[in-house]
Amino acid sequence: MSTPSLRTRLAARGLDGTTLLVLPGLAVMLGLFIYPFVYGLADSVMPKEGPWYANYVAFFSDPFQYRTIASTLWLALPVTIVNLAFAVPIAFRVRLMSRQRLLTTILVLPITLGTVFVADGLLTFLGPQGWFNRVLVLIGLLDAPVKLTNNYWGVFASLVITGFPFAFLLTLSYVTGIDPAIEQAAATLGANARQRFTKVFLPLLVPGLAVTFCLAFVQAFAVFPSAVLLGAPAGPTRVISIAAYQAAFEQYDHSLGTAIAMIMGAVELIVVLAVLGARSMFYRGPTGGTKG
């Protein structure tokens, strides 16, 4: 018996002509994603002057720079929690609707229009003479218009307008993935609405909610255009992406810029890993009611 040819042996391990089709796409990702990332990491430890860690020292010793981490988290974490807290009950209601299409189409609008358009609209809408303030004054909730643009709340509002639909649509796809028979079984056994939610749905939803939280957090954490246009980019809404952009493209110090970009990625990764780590403490298993 002769040994099979190299071609046959490779094919048995899943390597043949079809597998090679992955190469062009892989090459693009290696060239445009991995290489710049490694380059950036190396670039960040080759500062204009000083020892290799000079950029990181420069960032963490200047309050104007290191406070951007806190101000970014101070925006991104509350916004993500608020968006998710509203998304879950509304998704539970919408799940019962037969015609969800119109609602989901309306909600997908701000996501596709993007943060720049929303920021432009909010500048008019939330302005001192905008409809939002006028309505609140008209119904007597306010005596005088409040300032909602060019500060923290402007950026907060823009992150809710684009972030809530995102969190909602993701949550909805997880909620509708749970077999309704499970809820019916719980109701048959005498569980009321609150018990059905806390004892049945919530444990099933935790993995999905953790992923939704991470994806929504990544979006909010990367806030950039609305923090400049709607916020106070020199003050409380000087987020870390503004710091990275300014270092790289306004002070032309790409070494410091990439260092801040790496810090930004690391902070985000810590939060994401913390959330996913907490998830593993909960139930993991099928959400379908049928076998298999």
């Binding site: 892989l26 990332f37 950036g40 990275a244 790289a248 990439t258």
Partner: peptide, 26 residues
């Protein structure tokens, strides 16, 4: 294969500016 799939997943999980600034520099 899992590594390749992970490579295609990463850009959707990392904030655009984190890989955008080094890539723009290059």
């Amino acid at each position: 294969k899992r590594l390749v799939v992970l490579l295609f997943l990463l850009p959707l999980l990392i904030p655009p500016l984190t890989y955008g600034i080094p890539l723009a520099t290059v």
